[in-house]
């Protein structure tokens, strides 16, 4: 359990934002933490979609239950938060 800063690049939003997460958080929890700062503020919710996480610029989505500690992120590394049809 430790605080871990990531940078969120949220699909549809215009700016990178600092998102503090926990090393024990799963990728689903990371996506939810990032959504707080984008969805309903500058990005419309997309019913019928879930949010997935990938390394910035990668096309490969990280497993939903992968933990931050296991992902090997560098502090403040940028992750893309992507909408996926459920």
């Amino acid at each position: 359990m430790a605080l871990f800063p990531l940078t969120s690049n949220f699909e549809g939003d215009f700016v990178l934002q600092l998102v503090p997460v926990d090393t024990e958080h799963t990728m689903d929890e990371v996506a939810a933490a990032a959504a707080v700062h984008s969805v309903g503020r500058r990005v419309r919710d997309r019913p019928g979609h879930i949010l997935r996480v990938r390394r910035h610029g990668s096309t490969e989505l990280l497993p939903r239950n992968l933990k931050v500690a296991e992902a090997g992120f560098k502090p403040t590394e940028t992750v893309d938060i992507i909408w996926q049809a459920a």
């Binding site: 600092l18 707080v36 503020r41």
Partner: peptide, 10 residues
């Protein structure tokens, strides 16, 4: 409340 930020832009 939703028209204001709750974190910093990078």
């Amino acid at each position: 409340a939703k028209t204001y930020p709750e974190t910093l832009p990078y």
